[in-house]
């Protein structure tokens, strides 16, 4: 579903991604860990074309991100096409980024109604189902400020799901939450994984990575240092940098 080959990205003279190679297969749940500033968020944002890749090849579902390939040449996508591609990838942010002037229901319906031009009644019915599914059937009319962090993040997940994405990106979805609220969000993510959704999750919840993840990659200073089945990487890290990082956070 996601294929990265030598993906590079720099901000000014600062190289943030220095050749990322990885593949997320359809239906796979990949977790990504790494120290702060290692480029995890930047990589996720590249997949969604919120940042432009400077080098290498990055494709989602067989389509090159940001470009069209024709006769061996690359053509930059027009804005409209970029938007279409983005609509197929769901993204959940560390700080939720719900739209504060809209109710939970409006947050979830705005994408389908405005971007996909679905009839409002249909989108609303599905939004209610999604909100029920993340355990918020009774908070449909609440504004984000009236919800706890865990509830907000679950609305944010429902908002992304409403677009019926092929792929979901999670950027530290529980790091801004009080410890007692982390579980409710992870439970929702676990159920999505069980349904076979393809997910790329940046997280420091090792329990989640171990139990739900199909694979785990450790990223440091813009490269992937180690990857493999989560249990193996976590209990028998082969690289020194991975060992040092894990000993610090476990």
């Amino acid at each position: 579903m996601v294929r990265a080959e030598g993906v590079r990205k720099h901000f000014g003279r600062h190289e943030v991604l220095r050749g990322i190679d990885l593949e997320v297969r359809t239906g796979e749940v990949m977790c990504m860990i790494g120290p702060s500033g290692s480029g995890k968020s930047t990589f996720l944002r590249c997949i969604n074309h919120l940042e432009k890749v400077d080098g290498g090849r990055l494709s989602v579902d067989g389509h090159l991100v940001g470009y069209r390939e024709q006769g061996g040449k690359l053509y930059e996508l027009r804005d409209r096409e970029v938007c279409q591609r983005r609509a197929e990838v769901g993204m959940v942010f560390q700080h939720f980024n719900l739209f504060p002037h809209m109710t939970a229901l409006e947050n979830v319906t705005i994408g389908p109604v405005r971007v996909k031009r679905e009839p409002k009644a249909e989108a609303e019915a599905r939004a209610r189902q999604l909100l029920a599914r993340v355990g918020l059937a009774n908070r449909v009319g609440a504004y984000p400020r009236q919800l706890s962090g865990g509830q907000q993040q679950r609305v944010a997940i429902a908002r992304a799901l409403a677009m019926q994405p092929k792929l979901m990106l999670f950027d530290e979805p529980t790091s801004a939450l009080d410890p007692e609220l982390v579980g409710e969000v992870l439970d929702v993510m676990r159920s999505l994984a069980e349904e076979g959704l393809t997910m790329l999750v940046v997280t420091h919840e090792m329990g989640f990575a171990r139990e739900v993840g199909d694979s785990l990659v450790f990223m440091d200073q813009g490269v992937i240092v180690e990857s493999g089945p989560p249990r193996e990487v976590l209990s028998n890290p082969r690289q020194e940098r991975t060992q040092a990082f894990l000993s610090r956070i476990l």
Partner: peptide
């Protein structure tokens, strides 16, 4: 983050 969330939904 608001613009970003909107763009992530595919909004121009």
């Amino acid at each position: 983050g608001q613009t970003e969330a909107a763009q992530a939904l595919g909004m121009p």
